[in-house]
Write a protein that binds this DNA or RNA. Structure first.
Lengths: 196, 196, 196, 196
DNA sequence: ATATAAACGAGACGGTACGTCCCGTCTTTCG
DNA sequence: CGAAAGACGGGACGTACCGTCTCGTTTATAT
């Protein structure tokens, strides 16, 4: 199998890197509202058409910048479901309780929900932690540690939804106590109890 | 107390109504992205300065339009906590599982979180259902129907957060089954059990 | 008779003056090719939309700049047709044998020939000298100094056309001798002769 | 002597023809303003660098397209100067009283006057008729049919200049009557008369 | 009645950013 | 090794809205 070499001049990887760097810097320094294609072009020294060649608008560019260099949230290995889940929730909340967290929420809200780009962003940035949580819960259930008598999808939403709820609505702060309380309440609902 | 009648022409109440009507229509017909002050002025036949006299920008105008004529979500009276809560969740989800729901999320994400206007919008449109839920839970606890051994604030977030989570992220649909599952899991976590 | 006062904020005369000044300066300093709406906006400190409010494109702006402050070419009063016409032709050629002359030709060539703006430019800048020449010839004919046995329109084109011909084609220079020769040949063609 | 076979891929003669064909088509279909290097490349299926290898910019390309396949205007053989000159003027005006005529004027106005390409275009397309006219006049003078007592260069400009004048300024139409009138007036000025 | 004053509609203003077109150059692979 | 394909940095285009401002008009109270 030959590599599918296309004819013309190949895309300049450096240019894309500079664009994402500039977008990321603007995002952290000035915020989502200042992330305009114009500003990114000026700051990165790249022509606007080069940006539009890869991203359809400022929203997609913001998503790309937020995705680049994002390791994702993984479950910290713990001996029990409680410790593993709490560890993950704490790092998740730590990661989102910053300016970047709100920017992610704003970006997601502003993005075209049908776009493929948006879906990728959603899966990588928003739902990866939820998937990791799903794995933790399924393993624990296999060990007999918990009973998944309810809809697992809803349970996952009840664990991870509150984080974005507080982030977006801002009625209460995101802190580690919040993480622990969520885990405690969630585990209560899946407790393997004698009285059943 | 005498009414503080100022000299000069009084503000035209009709103008505000026409502005909100136009804003609402644009929101439902064209979406949040098309709700510009310019468009509202053109559609309502009102001058731009008249709009700016009442709202600082298009975001506030969107919030005002979304608030006007919104009755809020109240707990349907039920005999048990489960039925009351499930009734409320169902109507909440029904209200948000529309275009308007996503517009509310977008508006909230785009709004200045510090603005007084935003806070009012948040309380009236987003948090009113959460407050109603709090009342239901407290009443049930007073009746001994449930035990609130965990942080009530977190519990409320776990009930109402998932709605906005699915609305914003869009990974699964909002339907009545979702409402019932949330209530079931939540009640599991506050069940008054013999083994405690 | 009341002046027809319009409602809104009146156009800022100063802004238009600054725009024309900037356009004129760019035209003389950098040439027609550099007269972009963007550059005029930057130089005049005026927003681009303000320029587009008055002129449809860079061509019209160039025409406006070339028209502003242009006194037009008038016939120098002379005792005879020959001296009057020669005086006018000399000043016409002097006015066009500069960078500005070529810019006028380029502008006219680039302009939409149907536009009202173009017609006004044509009449004021290009054809005003031709009209003045027509008046001179008609007066001389009335005095019996010449006989207009041929088509006057064609004769006028033969007097004034060569100026633009040399200007545009550039095969020979524009100088005062050229002016005198044109007049001499033209008068030969309208000479009132005994042998007729 | 070996044939000078150069190494590598030989220049594709067909490419130039396709380029000129495409340029010509665009000129006639869309006009001078749409004749961009990009459009010609797309239409002809040729790479942009291949175009730039032969022409420096769109203006030169336009000139090349306008020159290609242009037979030039030659003097129709006539028995007298009047008939020969009138025949030539009529065919000249017929050739220019079309869209192509105005495109030639626009192209010439937009071209760099110093470029060698421009000079070639000027000589072949614009001045060839003037040179043919010069030959006619000199022959007639040699026959004693006319007297060239005035500057021949100016006389030629007065014959051919008006055509471009009307073409560019557009104040009156180009028609055969115009051709005849020009000839009539010009001959008047060079008439060999008894009274001299 | 008549002045005074506030809010109105209209609309031009200086600006920012948009997304597109085309420029002329450069880099890569193919023939 | 020239031709094709095509991405690049760059400049300008013409448009949409922004939020501010200045008008002339309307509508009310206060004199």
């Amino acid at each position: 199998m030959s590599p599918p070499k296309r004819r013309g001049r190949p895309p300049n990887q450096l240019a894309q890197a500079r664009i994402l760097k500039a977008a990321h810097d603007i995002l952290t320094e000035d915020g989502f509202g200042r992330l305009t294609v114009e500003a990114v072009a000026a700051r990165s020294g790249v022509g606007k058409p080069t940006i539009y060649r890869h991203w359809a608008n400022a929203s997609e560019l913001a998503m790309a910048a937020l995705m680049s260099g994002d390791p994702g949230i993984f479950a910290g290995g713990g001996t029990s479901l409680r410790s593993a889940l709490a560890g993950q929730m704490r790092s998740l909340i730590q990661a989102f309780a910053t300016t970047r967290g709100r920017q992610i929420a704003m970006t997601l809200a502003a993005a075209d929900p049908e776009s493929e780009f948006t879906k990728a962003f959603r899966n990588q940035v928003i739902l990866s932690s939820r998937e990791a949580g799903r794995a933790l819960l399924l393993e624990a259930a296999a060990r007999g540690e918990i009973m998944l008598q309810h809809d697992l999808e809803v349970l996952l939403d009840m664990i991870y939804g509150p984080v974005f709820y507080r982030l977006l609505v801002g009625h209460r702060s995101l802190d580690t106590g919040f993480a622990d309380s969520i885990v405690a309440i969630a585990l209560e609902a899946v407790a393997a109890r004698a009285d059943r």
